[in-house]
């Protein structure tokens, strides 16, 4: 294993560079005082201040947050119940297979297909209720639709690690069904539910394609705003915004990883 040819290292660094160099470039440009073009005109934090005062950006950020939180809440509740219902019921084999397929479908289907399917669904449902006109409601519904699968998969895999003997032991120790859930299953399931919710939230923030298709004029999210601004002509505020989002994403990941290691570390008194 130690005798790796040198070009392997070079190829790997090339990969890392391809991943990071554009992000780095934008971060540098966000501190550039030049208004138009990319000539270096000196260091400034103006664009961050302007970004923080920009109504459109703030409203898009608010929409993104609202969308992420609302869709994650729906998906976490529905996905967790789905996982429990599937794992803790002796369904016939054909039903289990079918359910597995159904849950995996949104994960493997290309975004754009999900997007046009949802557009079609909303078009039909709009005939019947104005709630489904393009906007925040359709965005939340759309995101929750594919998030449910991810939550159900994560919670389900956690549920599978809780052995039957745990439930039997609790039952043996006089716990009724409610107590088994509150005192044995949910406490052990909680890390899985939190992980599923975090994943769902990340996917919501990460989504562009589905949002692009189902959003309305009043429900611009941050990715949609950036995409639109590329057409209108970029201002350095967008550099600042992108840098904040990238930094925020990285911070969130580091935080999650840190929480994870802390949870795994042996608690001592």
């Amino acid at each position: 294993m130690s005798r790796l040819p040198r070009w392997i290292g070079w190829a790997s660094w090339l990969g890392v560079v391809i991943l990071y160099i554009p992000l780095l470039a934008v971060a540098i440009l966000s501190f550039n005082s030049t208004r138009y073009g990319q000539q270096w005109g000196g260091f400034t934090l103006d664009w961050y201040a302007k970004m923080a005062a920009n109504e459109a950006i703030l409203s898009a950020a608010w929409n993104s947050l609202l969308l992420g939180v609302a869709s994650t809440l729906i998906a976490t509740v529905a996905g967790t119940l789905l996982a429990i219902g599937l794992h803790r019921t002796p369904w016939p084999r054909w039903f289990q297979r079918g359910s597995d397929l159904a849950i995996n479908l949104p994960v493997v289907t290309p975004d754009i297909i999900l997007a046009i399917a949802l557009v079609g669904a909303f078009a039909v449902l709009r005939e019947w209720s104005a709630v489904f006109k393009p906007g925040l409601v359709t965005l939340i519904i759309a995101h929750a639709t594919f998030q449910i699968s991810f939550v159900a998969l994560v919670v389900g895999s956690r549920l599978a690690t809780i052995g039957r003997d745990q439930v039997e032991a609790a039952r043996d120790l006089y716990a009724n069904t409610g107590q088994i859930w509150l005192r044995v299953l949910l406490p052990q399931l909680m890390p899985g539910i939190i992980a599923g919710a975090l994943l769902a939230f990340t996917i919501s923030l990460d989504d562009f394609v589905v949002s692009f298709f189902v959003s309305g004029p009043d429900s611009t999210t941050l990715p949609l705003l950036i995409y639109a601004s590329v057409r209108r002509g970029v201002t350095p505020e967008i550099h600042a915004l992108s840098t904040v989002i990238v930094a925020g994403t990285m911070l969130a990941i580091i935080l999650t990883a840190w929480l994870q290691t802390r949870r795994d570390a042996t608690p001592k008194d």
Partner: peptide, 19 residues
């Protein structure tokens, strides 16, 4: 290697435009 994939695709593509 995984962190950039968590950054929204539009932002990464936009970053390429700038680069």
């Amino acid at each position: 290697i995984m962190v950039p994939s968590c950054v929204n695709l539009v932002i990464r593509t936009y970053a390429w435009q700038q680069f």
